[in-house]
Each structure stands twice: as structure tokens, then as C-alpha cells.
């Protein structure tokens, strides 16, 4: 390799490494803000600012969903299945995938009473897909549904 080309190789690699370094430093600086939502533990421990629009996420606690009989109002609890949970109120149409045990993101404000007043509810599904027939087989469904409590929900390094 001739010297000129060697120099270009060096300079080009330098540009690439410098860019990668810059980007990773930016991401490290932004760390917490890059996350899309607060996990239940943060909400329960009061790490979430009150009366500001924020996002929080968790799994819908089994048996916690109460629907009003005369309106679209609904109350449910989001949990990380590790002891932390919080109550959400919402009025409106829920996504198709909303159900007990499902991972859910809510956007809205946390009030002083610790109740999350959601203005938007989003369903988070995991990367596992399965035909409905397999759901009926004992043992097959829970394996994907609950053992690996939705990666990314509830855990945070």
C-alpha cells in the first residue's frame, strides 16, 4: 500500500471512529431520556415528576381492570410483578391488544394521590408469535406469556 493511500486509510478510519465515539457519548449523556417510559418502580418510588406529561409502562395486573357501565372510563393497575405498581385511570378506546397480563404504555400525568391520569394508552407486544391452536395446549401458552415478563418492562439498569 502506498503512503498516500495509507494516509487516506488512516484519516478515513479516524473519521469513522470519531463519529462513533461522538454518537455514543451523546447517547451516554442522554441515557435516561432515551428511554421511552418510566417503569412501575420509578412511579411507585416517586421518581416521576407530578402534573407533567410523562409516559409510564407496566403489565396490566390480573383482575384489576374495572370498566364503567355507562361510559368508556376504565381503571386498571400496572405492575412489574416485582412488588411495584400504580393505578391508572383512562377514558377512551383501548387498543385491541389491551388485556390483563399485557404490557401497556400510558401517557398522561401523575397526580398528587399517585394515580396516573392517562390520555393515551398503547399496547406493547413482545417478539413471540404463536398460532391460536397452540394456546389451547396445556403448558405451551404460559411459557411465552408470563415466564419472561416482557423484556424491557419493569427492568432498568
Amino acid at each position: 500500500m502506498n503512503p498516500k493511500r495509507k494516509q487516506r486509510l488512516f484519516m478515513t478510519s479516524f473519521v469513522l471512529v470519531a463519529t462513533a465515539l461522538t454518537v455514543s457519548l451523546v447517547f451516554m449523556a442522554l441515557e435516561q431520556n432515551m428511554n421511552m417510559f418510566y417503569p412501575p418502580a420509578d412511579v411507585a418510588q416517586g421518581k416521576v415528576p407530578l402534573n407533567q406529561t410523562v409516559r409510564a409502562g407496566g403489565m396490566v395486573l390480573e383482575g384489576s381492570v374495572e370498566r364503567a357501565s355507562d361510559s368508556l372510563a376504565v381503571i386498571f393497575t400496572l405492575t412489574d410483578h416485582q412488588g411495584a405498581d400504580f393505578v391508572v385511570t383512562y377514558t377512551g378506546i383501548l387498543p385491541d391488544l389491551f388485556r390483563e397480563g399485557q404490557g401497556i404504555l400510558v401517557e398522561g400525568e401523575l397526580n398528587r394521590a399517585g394515580v396516573f391520569e392517562a390520555v393515551e394508552v398503547l399496547a406493547k407486544h413482545d417478539e413471540n408469535y404463536m398460532p391460536p391452536e397452540l394456546m389451547d395446549m396445556p403448558g405451551a401458552a404460559p411459557a411465552t406469556a408470563s415466564t419472561e415478563a416482557l423484556p424491557g418492562l419493569g427492568e432498568r439498569e
Binding site: N35, M36, G57, H125, D126, Y129
Partner: peptide
């Protein structure tokens, strides 16, 4: 790296797909 709404990959070169073969 981050908490995202998008689910992780179901289909990679290195791991078994997170769905049955017919899918």
C-alpha cells in the same frame, strides 16, 4: 439499549426464531 415500544427482534441470524416454523 432503551425501553422502547417496538418489540425486540423475532428473527436473527444467531438465535432460534421466537415463533413456530409454520410462521
Amino acid at each position: 439499549w432503551w425501553n422502547t415500544l417496538h418489540q425486540p427482534a423475532s428473527f436473527t441470524l444467531t438465535e432460534k426464531p421466537a415463533m413456530p416454523a409454520e410462521m
